[in-house]
């Protein structure tokens, strides 16, 4: 009887999880399905997953030849990695100081970090745009990166992780003659890979997929990141060729999925260890 009830609750829990997963996967499935359909089937009134006539080769071929997908992906990589590198370079020492050093005003500073988490990027968009325009930096990679270089979220996430690092090891390092910066990079960071990987996934996904800010500061399609490139591609080249559009989208989403699959274990470990859910 008890085993039966246990099995029942398992089925219920997994049912809910499966329904949630299906709901989240549906757009992706639809994207792939559409990318394989000929134009006349895309808007057919019947709901049909698989195409009657396989049109995938044409759609993917069209997207690859007509849109500079590699260029978009390269731009995305430059922007994402640039942002991530500076974010980590700045946030790791900050998080360490907030987690492990005692100095006056530390708690106030941490409060500021928490408060700045609550400010959406749209709020400082106008002053940032004006500043970049005055510095003639519009239409550059730097313009796409500047608002995100200093990440309060990274400071917060890493601080929670560093907080649990044993103090004795830091003190042993001080006795061995290490300065604080050396302790951070040589002792603490090598143990913090799960948290760093988790944050990296957050950061890369967010900025790879970001349309809002590149749309504001970029007009030159040679600098476009994947979502902006997709938009320009949709307007200029394809008209209403949704099959080709979805093929391009599938190809631009693929790198992210691959990155996530590789970093998945660290990502989950990092998120659960820091208590951020």
């Amino acid at each position: 009887m008890r085993a039966l009830r246990h099995a029942g609750s398992l089925i219920l829990v997994h049912g809910v999880l499966l329904a949630g997963a299906a709901f989240m996967l549906l757009p992706f499935v639809w994207m792939i399905a559409t990318s394989l359909k000929p134009p006349e089937e895309v808007f057919s009134a019947t709901l049909q997953l698989l195409p009657n006539r396989f049109h995938g080769a044409e759609n993917y071929g069209f997207a690859l030849t007509q849109a500079p997908l590699v260029r978009f992906a390269l731009n995305g990589a430059i922007v994402c990695l640039g942002i991530l590198a500076v974010q980590l370079l700045v946030a790791i020492p900050c998080a360490y100081a907030l987690a492990k050093l005692r100095f006056p005003g530390r708690d106030a500073l941490f409060l500021l970090v928490l408060l700045s988490l609550a400010i959406p990027v749209q709020v400082p968009a106008l002053p940032l745009y004006i500043a970049l325009a005055d510095l003639s930096l519009l239409n550059t990679y730097l313009a796409m990166m500047v608002p995100f270089l200093f990440s309060a979220f990274a400071v917060f996430l890493l601080r929670q992780f560093f907080k649990s690092y044993p103090d004795d090891i830091l003190q042993a390092a001080r006795l061995d003659g290490m300065r604080e910066l050396e302790i951070v990079w040589r002792i603490v960071v090598p143990s913090a890979w799960p948290a760093i990987a988790a944050f990296s996934v957050f950061s890369v996904v967010a900025h790879w997929n970001d349309l809002y800010w590149p749309l504001i500061v970029i007009t030159d399609s040679a600098l476009a990141t994947p979502p902006l490139g997709m938009m320009l591609f949709a307007d200029a080249e394809t008209g209403s060729n949704y099959g080709a559009l979805m093929a391009a989208a599938a190809m631009l989403t693929a790198p992210l999925v691959v990155v996530f699959l590789f970093a998945r274990r660290w990502f989950i470990a990092g998120v659960t260890m820091t208590g951020v859910k």
Binding site: P166, D168, I169, Q171, A172, A173, R174, L175, G177
Partner: peptide
């Protein structure tokens, strides 16, 4: 003087070895 300048060495209860 900073800790390492004092010519002292310490053994901790948790051993405090560098894990990596």
């Amino acid at each position: 003087l900073r800790p390492h300048e004092r010519r002292v060495a310490m053994v901790f209860q948790s051993y405090a070895l560098y894990p990596h």
